[in-house]
Design a protein around this nucleic acid. Structure first.
Lengths: 226, 226
DNA sequence: CCGAAACATGACCGGACGGTAATGGGCGAT
DNA sequence: ATCGCCCATTACCGTCCGGTCATGTTTCGG
């Protein structure tokens, strides 16, 4: 389990970090809000422990920034402010738990594990998004900018795979393996045909193209420039 | 949002229930652990608030019973025991939060909403289980006791719907609406035919039958007796 | 115990899904 | 600039999904 602690008081930070490491977790520590945000963006953490009061960027602001960027990490606020209003404010800002200093390490650990337990129970993302295109894996629905797009099963699997790997080139071999379950080269242009059909449905004239071909390599799903 | 409060002190129970109702939530109240368990099994709640000390069946025991039956409901423990060890014990038992009495209602509400927010963000269950039959909604795979079962799309949707409502009778009308998207009666026996096909695949001679017909009503998916 | 209603199952068959192939177009290399 | 390769697109058609129908079986009321 990987934990990020954002806390400016080195005593508290070290105390917590050490204990968590001894419990077998990987711990990153940041002393300021901005540094913390960078670390949070740089790597996936299982739980964040954030001090309420931080020099520069405040803890609440950090949480709001993370949440507004779509992050779902469980966050525990650590604070000296025991006041009920403060606690409520912290929770409303988008955190999942609030622990007041001074705290017992065993409780911090228990709460972190409770947060993680809950998160771990949650399923792999069931809805994929690239640009204004969204695909709901459970409902098996695809939408682009408001309207629903009907896809055939094979088309759906193809798009799903492309979106799961959005931003990375997907080779023909990968597609044959994962979308067609072929473990050999069919020597035909099945893929080309289905890419074409997909494009006609999702990359309609309106809006930018999301499926890009990478000559000699395969295809890539991407919104935005570069 | 539907909340179940298991609390023997009527003052506390009423205080919390009233406040939550005023905040627009549906609230059920149970005064004993056993009664609480029954209510929890009888209906789906979004959050449970459980008193630590209860006459008869203890709060911790209630939580353990729920968790071992596979329930994932977010649970908040309410307790007069502020002691760190008690708090840790409560969280380890499988609860998600721990609030000590006396408490401010605004904090209870904020914590309940934080728990729910987290839960709501998590996806609907992607794998369904009834007896030794499992269905993975994302991988679109069905297994019964070790081996994989291949289902046609319509068969899959049918089984998925039955399993989503395991334990409750599913009427023909419901199936037509939700599995076939028919909003009228096709006057044919499509459903019977598909139920039959499903049975041949999943209720093979080996193992107990999971799909049961309820004469005059519909079908029900259930493992175990009664 | 008999009959009717409700349900189960097997056979049939139309249509759409999805693969193949052929042709046309565009990018890149020499 | 031109040739060749890689990709795009259209048309065609076989296969299997899934709905209908007809017949057999079970359950319940009278």
């Amino acid at each position: 389990m990987r934990i990020l602690i954002i806390e400016d008081d080195p005593n508290v930070a070290n105390f917590a970090a050490r204990g968590l490491r001894e419990s077998g977790h990987a711990v990153d520590v940041a002393a300021t809000g901005t540094e913390g945000l960078e670390l949070a963006y740089a790597a996936r953490h299982d739980v964040l422990v954030v001090d309420r009061m931080l020099p520069g960027m405040d803890g609440i602001a950090v949480i709001q920034a993370l949440r507004s960027s779509g992050s779902q990490v469980p966050i525990l606020i650590l604070s000296a402010l025991a006041d009920v209003d403060q606690r409520v404010a912290g929770l409303s800002a988008g955190s999942d738990d609030y622990l007041t200093k001074p705290f017992a390490f065993s409780e911090l650990l228990a709460r972190i594990e409770a947060l993680h337990r809950r998160q771990a129970g949650s399923e792999p993302a069931s809805s994929l998004v690239v640009g204004d295109l969204t695909l709901d894996r459970l409902k098996r629905e695809v939408h682009r900018g408001g309207d629903t797009i009907a896809l055939q099963p094979r088309e759906f699997r193809l798009l799903e795979y492309l979106m799961l790997h959005a931003g990375q080139v997907v080779t023909r071999t990968m597609l044959l393996e994962k979308v067609w379950d072929y473990h050999f080269d069919p020597q035909t242009n099945v893929i080309d045909v289905h890419i074409s059909r997909l494009r006609q449905k999702i990359d309609r004239e309106d809006g930018e193209a999301l499926i890009h071909t990478v000559r000699g390599a395969g295809y890539i799903m991407r919104a935005g420039e570069t």
